Structures are given as structure tokens and as C-alpha cells.
Simulated assay, not measured.
Amino acid sequence: MRILVLHAHPVEESFGGALHRLAVERLAAAGHAVDDCDLYAEDFDPRLSPQERRGYHEIGPNIEPVRPYVERLRAADALVLCYPVWNFGYPAILKGFFDRVFLPGVSFTIENGRVVPCLHNIGKVAVITTYGGSRTRALLAGDPPRKLVERVLRLTVRPGASVRYLAQYDMNRSTPRIRERFMEMVGREMDAF
């Protein structure tokens, strides 16, 4: 399977960096073709320019500023996202990726005023993420990051696609053993992906 791994953490030696490396290593060891897209290492520009916004709905020309990323997304059979939750959302660089790459004609079309998902080449999605706060705190806020994946991203990919959300909550108080157990779980999930 061809897997696009989208990584969005600026600090390579962080726990998020370790999770990213683990995912890539285990997916490759399982025989998958891994396209490792480290948004920070690739210096991805998350800013949607005025010109891009004006041409947003021009299917075809709208992809030109981000063509290499669109091609990588279209070539993938599966998507693995590895990022920290910041301010109950995606890091800005990942949000910018969605804004600039998940375009009309790429991840959806508009037919008779209705949005119709079309990223049907993606048959599996996994998210590997960390939260600074507790699960309870996230639930009290409605856990927007989980909803973005399980409700919005799920609707964009192939109908019936498998979507796994692997979250380590309460990083602010986690211990080495808690982090180790989470890495073991992520390793098992990537082995079986």
C-alpha cells in the first residue's frame, strides 16, 4: 500500500518526532511504500495567497501552486497524520496544508451547490496525536481535533474507509512509562495497518 505520512511538528527530538519516526519505520518494515511528508522539514508554506483564494474554485489551475503535494495525495492509498494538538486544533502548518491542498477537484467537488467528497483513493486513515491536557478537559471542550478527523476527514475519503484516532492525552503530566506504552500501541497499529 502507498501511504502518505503527514508530519507536523517543528522539533525533531520531541515526543511527536519520535512518534513520527516510529510510524515511518514500522510502516516501511511492514512492506508499505511510505511517502514521508514532514511539513516543517519541507518548509511547506501554510499561507493561502490572495491569488490562490481568488482562483480557489478554478479546478485545474487551482492546484498549480501546490501541484507536488496534490500529486502525492492522489498517489496515496492511505493517509497517516502525525501531529500535536495545539489550542484544540491542528498545528497551523497542517491546517494550512488542508486549506491549500484539499482543494475543489482534489478532495471534493461542488455539484448543484452541494459539496461532494472525492478523495476516494484514500481507503485508510490513522491519526497519531498528543494533547497537553487531559481527556476530560478535551471532552469538556468537545474534543474538536477528534471531531475534525472522525467527522470531517472521514467524509472526504473513500466511503467506509477505516479511520483510527490514536491520542495520548495529558502530555503535561505524562511519565516515561505512559509515553512508552503509547509508543508500543502506535507500533502495533502501524505493524497491522
Rank of each mutant, 00 (worst) to 15 (best):
R2Q: 15
I3M: 04
L4H: 06
V5A: 07
P10K: 08
P10T: 11
V11I: 14
E12A: 14
E13N: 15
E13R: 14
S14D: 14
S14P: 09
L19I: 12
H20P: 01
V24S: 01
E25K: 10
L39M: 01
Y40D: 02
Y40G: 04
D43V: 02
R47Y: 05
S49C: 03
P50T: 01
E52G: 01
E52D: 11
H57K: 05
E58R: 15
I59D: 01
G60V: 07
P68R: 11
V70P: 00
L73E: 10
L73T: 09
R74F: 05
R74G: 07
A76Q: 02
D77R: 13
A78T: 06
L79T: 07
L81N: 03
L81R: 02
C82F: 01
F88R: 03
Y90R: 09
I93E: 00
K95R: 15
G96L: 10
F97T: 01
F98M: 13
V101I: 09
F102W: 14
L103G: 00
V106H: 05
I110S: 01
G113Y: 07
P117Y: 04
C118V: 10
N121M: 04
N121D: 14
G123K: 11
G123Q: 10
K124N: 13
V125L: 11
A126E: 13
A126K: 12
I128Q: 04
I128N: 08
T129L: 12
Y131P: 00
G132C: 08
G132Q: 06
G132K: 00
G133E: 14
R135K: 15
T136Q: 15
A138C: 14
A141T: 10
G142W: 00
P145R: 06
R146P: 03
K147L: 06
E150A: 04
E150M: 15
V157R: 09
N172L: 14
N172E: 14
R173N: 15
S174H: 02
P176C: 00
R177G: 02
R179V: 04
E180M: 07
E184M: 12
F193V: 09
